[in-house]
Amino acid sequence: MATLLYGPQHDPIHIEDRALAHLKIVIATKLRRNETFTLSWKHPEAEPGGRSTIWIHPSIPLRFVFDEPEAPQINVRWVEELMHTANSSGGIMLVDEVLDIGEIERQH
């Protein structure tokens, strides 16, 4: 389980490594453009139910911490879907990974 540390209090936000690797690409792209936005996610099963939203701004400290030493292979379709939500009025919503038919067939 990876951790996103946001803000000076560094309250840990636990997100699965693969998901955070994809989110990092979208967040870095938005921040490079000096865009502010929200990030929303459902709480992991090990935490109390519900969901959270934070406001992402370039001036607020942000750190990505991964448990896995190697970066995962990036699913471009998933990044595109996350970027699509990032460009909406609701901000980034951590959605489940998007797989195309060819990728599903290769896994079986």
Rank of each mutant, 00 (worst) to 15 (best):
T3C: 05
D11S: 10
P12Q: 03
I15S: 00
E16K: 14
L20M: 03
A21L: 02
L23Q: 00
L23P: 02
I27L: 04
I27P: 07
A28Y: 07
A28K: 13
A28I: 05
R33C: 08
R33M: 11
R33W: 07
N34H: 09
T36N: 08
F37W: 02
F37T: 01
F37D: 01
L39A: 01
L39I: 00
S40V: 03
S40T: 15
W41P: 12
E45S: 15
A46N: 10
A46V: 10
E47Y: 06
E47W: 06
G49T: 07
G50Y: 00
S52R: 12
S52D: 12
W55D: 10
I60C: 04
I60G: 02
F66Y: 15
E68W: 05
P69I: 04
P69C: 11
Q73G: 11
N75L: 13
N75Q: 10
R77T: 07
E80L: 15
E80R: 13
L82D: 04
H84K: 12
H84P: 00
H84A: 13
T85G: 09
S88V: 13
S88Q: 09
G90S: 11
L94P: 11
V95H: 08
V95F: 03
E97Q: 15
E97F: 04
L99I: 10
E103V: 07
I104S: 02
E105P: 08
Q107R: 15
Q107E: 13
